[in-house]
């Protein structure tokens, strides 16, 4: 099975007090640590599990700068066969342009399956995967939390609202956006890192992909980024822990949480 897996490097923002930068359209990134987008880690693991199970080839793709190659090397260390970085050539990109660029970069590749994360930790748009499927004319399923390969198709478990799952048959070639928790991503091993250094990591400029200026024009623009205003509504409880626990359960019941 020929699999393409899309990955993104994102700032690690847990337990970090983010600051808005001077432009008011982005955050201050100095001093932030970067990691692979959580969902993408699951997508890479799923691609490698499929390869280990039924054979095939896994190519990891990212769009970004040289620093972003870190997540490609990570995918290679986990077991991907080769990697492609689409260099931004200094352009600002949005989800649609990223989807067009990836589609152009992998055009003509032997392809059975494209995996992406459901969304990225940083902008939470959750659009690249499904737009990429649309551009490439692939059947797709979003928020997938289980994959069972069958002859010429996949049986996939899709997460719906309210804790309900749906089992769906998806014809190949297909694109799936992967939900976190679908598997347990392996740790990167030192041996994997050493092997990764010998694997191909190809860089293509976004300007070399044959896309027109119209294709590369932004469809969305960030006007403002702001921190959510502090609001009231928090109810402070105090007292004896056993009574507190009861009070918390009572509130949860009242708000409709099944307890």
């Amino acid at each position: 099975m020929d699999i393409i897996v899309c990955v993104k490097r994102v700032p690690f923002t847990q337990e970090v007090d983010l600051e808005i930068d001077k432009s008011g359209k982005s955050i201050v990134t100095d001093g932030l640590a970067y990691v692979i987008n959580d969902w993408d880690g699951y997508a890479v693991e799923e691609a490698i599990l499929l390869k280990e199970r039924i054979g095939g080839n896994v190519i990891a793709v990212t769009v970004g700068s040289e620093d972003d190659e870190e997540v490609l090397r990570r995918a290679l260390a986990m077991g991907a066969d080769r990697a492609i970085r689409i260099d931004t050539c200094g352009r600002s990109l949005d989800g649609l342009v990223v989807a067009k660029a990836v589609a152009a970069a992998i055009k003509g590749f032997p392809l059975d399956l494209v995996l992406t994360g459901v969304q990225a930790d940083d902008d939470n748009q959750a659009v690249v995967g499904i737009m990429l499927a649309e551009i490439m004319g692939l059947s797709h399923a979003a928020v997938v939390r289980g994959i069972e390969p069958e002859e010429g198709s996949l049986k996939v478990r899709v997460e719906l609202e309210g804790g309900i799952d749906e089992i769906r048959q998806v014809k190949l070639p297909a694109l799936l956006t992967i939900q976190s928790g679908i598997n347990e991503p392996r740790y990167v091993s030192v041996m994997g890192i050493r092997k990764a250094a010998k694997k191909e990591l190809k860089v293509i400029g976004i300007d070399e992909l044959g896309l027109s200026e119209a294709d590369l024009a932004l469809a969305t623009e960030i006007e403002e980024v702001y921190l959510p205003p502090e609001t009231g509504g928090a109810e402070m409880l105090s007292g004896d822990p056993s009574k507190l626990a009861r009070a918390v359960i009572e509130i949860m019941r009242r708000k409709g949480v099944a307890v």
């Binding site: 870190e70 090397r73 990570r74 260390a77 740790y187 990167v188 890192i193 050493r194």
Partner: peptide, 17 residues
């Protein structure tokens, strides 16, 4: 170097996990 940084990250993830 890149390899050392990758090893550092891998060890960090292992320790956290």
């Amino acid at each position: 170097n890149k390899k050392q940084k990758d090893i550092q990250k891998a060890a960090r993830e292992f320790a956290q996990g």
